[in-house]
Each structure stands twice: as C-alpha cells, then as structure tokens.
Design a protein around this nucleic acid. Structure first.
Lengths: 212, 212
DNA sequence: ACAGCCCCAGTTGTGCACAAGTGGATAGCT
DNA sequence: AGCTATCCACTTGTGCACAACTGGGGCTGT
C-alpha cells in the first residue's frame, strides 16, 4: 500500500472513531480547513476522506454550509439492526475459520479488559472496547465480503449505544458485555465458531431491546 | 439533491455500467483527463467518482501508472456469491414489501423483454436486462440497508457472467433467465414475496454452478 | 553486441485560488 | 419597534498548475 493510501486509511479510521465515540456529536460542523491543518495536509486529500464518510452515512456535506455529523435514531436504524443480526449469524456458517491459540489469547485479553471496565464503568471506555471487540469478531469468518458489510453496518449504528447510555444502567451494560465475552470465550475454547456467532447475534438483539 | 450530487450519481452509474458491460474490459487503462473532457468537467469531480468506484472494487488507481479496471475471477468471488445467496433470501424475510399492481406491470414488461431477447440472443443485451432486473428486485424489500449491500455485491460480480458466456450456451442462458422472470411473475401474482426471493436465490446459485 | 543508465512522456496525487452557495448580522425603511 | 432587503463572513465545489511517481525507449560506455 502506498503512502497516500495509508494516510487515507489512518485519517478515515481516526475521524470515524471520533464520530462514533461522540467526540464529534451529531450535528457537529466539521471544518475541512481545520481538519486539514490538524493532520498536516491540504483540503484535497482530506475531502476524499470526508467523501467516504459521507458514503458510509456518518457525515453529510452541504454546499455553502459545512460538513455535518449525521444524527442517528434507533427507530431509523431498526432495519440496519435487523440486517446486522442476520450477518452476525452468517459469520458462523459462511467460511467460518478454525479457532487458533492466538484467537484464544486475544479473547482472554478482552475478558481481562472487560473485568477492568466493570470495576470502573465508564461510557467512552466501554464504547472503545466494544469497537475493538467488534473488530476481533470479524476475524471469526474468512468471508471478506461478509466482514466488509458487517463492518459498514456496525459503524453506522455504533453511536446509538453511547447516545442511549444516559437512559440505561452503565454498570449493567458493562456486566452484560463482560458476560458476552466470557460466553464467547467458552464457545471458542470448544472450537465452536458457529456458537460464538449465535452468541453475538443474541447479544446484539438484546442490546437493541434494552436501548429501545 | 443538489446539482453536484446528481452529476456524481450520473457519472458513477454510467462508468459502473461501462465497466460491468465490459465496454471497459478488465485491465483497461482509464484516463482521468479523457473522461473529464468527455463529461465536460474537470478532473476534480471525476476523481471523486473514480474514488468511489475504487471503494467498490471496480477500478484501482496507481500513482504514476493510471486507473485500471480490476479483473474478476469466479474463484475469488466464491465468497461474494455465498453472501449474495443469503442476502437474496433475506429480501423475502426482512421487511418484505406487499406486491403492488405497478410491480406486476413491471415484471410483465421484463418478461416481454426476456421473450424479445430469447428470440435474438445477444450477450450485451442480456447483461443490460439482467442489470435492470436486479434493480427491480431491490424493490421487493423495504430494508434500505439490505438493498444497499445487495447492490454493492451485485455490481462486484456482475461482469463474471459476461466473461463466462463464451464458454456457455447463450440461448440456454436466455431461456433460463426468462424462466426465472416467469417464475417470479407467478410468485408475485400470488403475493408471495418470500417465494420470489427464494427463486432469486436458487437462480443465482445455479448460475454460479453453470459458470464454474 | 549488449548491459546498464538515464531521460522523458504520461499518469495520479496535492495544494492553492477562485466560483458557487448559505445563513445570520446589520443597516435602513416604514 | 418591527420588518425587509442587503451585505458579508464563511463554507463546500471546481479548475488548474505543479509535485510525485512509473515504465519504457533510447543512448552511452564497454
């Protein structure tokens, strides 16, 4: 990958994370000039990043106005969640990968971080851990297209949990998340990728119900 | 939608069609300058279109070389097809839409065009009709996310049939396609969207087997 | 004759200046 | 005072010039 493409990936991931962690809450007006300055480039490469974020539905550029961070409503996202459920399950049946020792190590570390989080619950840390855990979950299937679609849809809905947390019990959420990771650990230790996928589906589904 | 956005959509659809109909066969070197001239703009807006086509996997830009139309192998696309099968079926269960008289009219017209095609089989006309029929198929589900993912994956694999046709029987393919549309017509007349989705899945699956 | 080097035409990537457009502040009229 | 029209600071969109880079053709030295 060339230097330009790497920079693109870096800026894209960084801005996407800022949006999904609500560093840029919905409605925020992003300035191309300011962002370009911050990242040490001109507007041109940065505009390409913003164009992709717009494709992904995270921002919306309006001529003469600015680039706004889009808002997300759980209601509008019902269809996206319905599809995410199915894709999560498909990860267990479409090109499932054998469980490796490295994967078990990784999930072990996630459980450890989940325990740390449960000891000192905090929304942003939860969201960050959830994002990384999602990324790990992609490694369970060898189907690249499925990974790509799953990721696209994840980031489109990722902000909803953080927006909903004021109406929910943070400690409960952390405990449930830790529980999901432990169940997944058990499934993976048994080498049952499909079970891990079903656990994921179940927890996404329950998460939606709690947020609604 | 603003004028700039409409132009973007127009150029994007046009170039995507040219690539998928093999007007630009895999390996073709596209010139930003030449395309910009043809469409009466500067390179800047056109580059945005090419960037999106690159995201979608249809072209690949190399610094100092040019923008190449990507190649597609049925083998590499096995995973994409596997996912397309599942998504096709989901169109019948995720937010299926009630069948309207307009939809029946439309499928009737498709059957008519299929009969015309069968009378004078021709690869490009087949591919064109298939593309429009796919677009019609999207209207069976109300799930926008599913439509988006289905479309993305369709265009990623659309060229494979045209590439494979020299090794296949064109008349057979036209007959099978017409048969699919007639079966779908029957299902829709019965108001059974789910059956239509299963028919679609079955025909994608069989099409893959014939091409392999 | 051949190997190695360099140069150059041509391409995409970047930066900048300006065009197009928006929305609020402000001045002016009733 | 209130309403309206205009202006203006600021944004994104576009066009252009140049930088960065590639691959091949040709030249040169041996």
């Amino acid at each position: 990958m060339s230097g330009a493409a790497r920079r693109f990936q870096r800026l894209h991931a960084e801005l996407r994370a800022r949006i999904c962690l609500l560093d840029y809450p919905p409605g925020t007006l992003l300035s191309e000039t300011a962002l370009a300055q911050e990242f040490g480039t001109s507007r041109t490469p940065l505009r390409r990043v913003l164009a992709r974020l717009e494709d992904e539905g995270l921002v919306e550029s309006r001529h003469g106005v600015g680039t706004l961070v889009t808002d997300v409503e759980i209601g509008e996202m019902a269809q996206v969640y319905a599809l995410r459920l199915e894709l999560a399950q498909l990860a267990g049946t479409l090109d499932p990968l054998p469980v490796t020792p490295e994967m078990l190590d990784e999930v072990e570390r996630f459980v450890g971080r989940g325990e740390t989080l449960l000891a000192a619950p905090e929304p942003r840390g939860f969201a960050q851990l959830n994002m990384e855990y999602h990324s790990f979950g992609l490694s369970l299937t060898g189907n690249a297209a499925l990974r790509e679609m799953t990721e696209r849809l994840y980031f489109r809905t990722a902000r909803i949990w953080l927006k909903s947390i004021p109406h929910m019990d943070l400690a409960d959420e952390c405990a449930i998340f830790l529980s999901e990771m432990r169940e997944t650990q058990t499934a993976l230790r048994a080498g049952d990728t499909q079970a891990a996928a079903l656990i994921r589906r179940a927890h996404i589904s329950m998460s939606v119900r709690r947020m609604s």
